[in-house]
Design a binder for these strands. Structure first.
Lengths: 121, 121
DNA sequence: TATTTGTGAAACCTTATGGTTTCGTTATTA
DNA sequence: TAATAACGAAACCATAAGGTTTCACAAATA
């Protein structure tokens, strides 16, 4: 049962938990109260997140404060980065191609007409 | 059974498949031959990847060519991006702090000594 | 001290996941 | 035309995932 950041963020509930505690740590009950499912279910998610290193649980009296360790997401972005470069480059080339066409007052083929502004990094 | 890019890349075998076909499309058997598990198992992963929009399968004669659609990874990097900024900023502040210390010829406390060059965006 | 609050863990259930073997079908090719 | 290559799909299996209810226990509080 190998647990990593990829597995951690695969579940939408766990992504929501990250969203919740990313900027301010919360105790288990407070996290759970924002969801429809039971506290125990959320606790299980928190346990998985903590096993994956994405959440650190610190005891404070009878409460356990859940703190997001966002750096662990680096594993995921490291994996994606090279591919992101590829698709960004591809989009950029298309974008440039369209610009060249336009500046030459040529007709843009229907199939490649620009639909959305292209996001750059 | 909602399928998205997060789920697609949660499995290590599927990530390997993406690695394999990212830069050159391959047919199902060729993909499968690189793994220890059966062709059928790989085919199932390919089906999931295609349901998630990360792979497009094009028939060519009796072969099905699997082509990676890397743009779909945008969903994932969009989700991570804001958090990446946060932890990058945190690391940057530490980095700046260390630089200030160094330029003032002060002693760097052991606990915060720089270990790796910090990656910036 | 008695009660409430916040939590961890166990037992259990249903469904999804990842794998297998087997079989049928369509293109190639000998 | 017969054999083989490349699939797709079905049936099946073990285990993991995500959920529930219940119980136990320590800390805070009335």
């Amino acid at each position: 049962m190998k647990r990593d950041a990829f597995l951690a963020i695969a579940d939408p509930t766990r992504r929501e938990i990250i969203n919740m505690i990313a900027f301010h740590s919360l105790n288990v009950n407070t996290v759970a109260s924002h969801f429809k499912v039971s506290r125990t279910a959320i606790y299980k998610h928190l346990k998985i997140l903590s096993q994956c290193g994405l959440v650190q649980i610190n005891q404070q009296g009878r409460e356990r404060i859940c703190e997001a360790k966002l750096e662990k997401l680096q594993d995921v972005s490291d994996w994606i980065e090279p591919y992101q470069k590829v698709w960004a480059t591809r989009l950029d080339s298309l974008d440039n191609y369209l610009h060249r066409l336009q500046s030459q007052n040529e007709k843009i083929p229907e199939q490649v007409k620009k639909k959305k502004p292209v996001k750059r990094t």
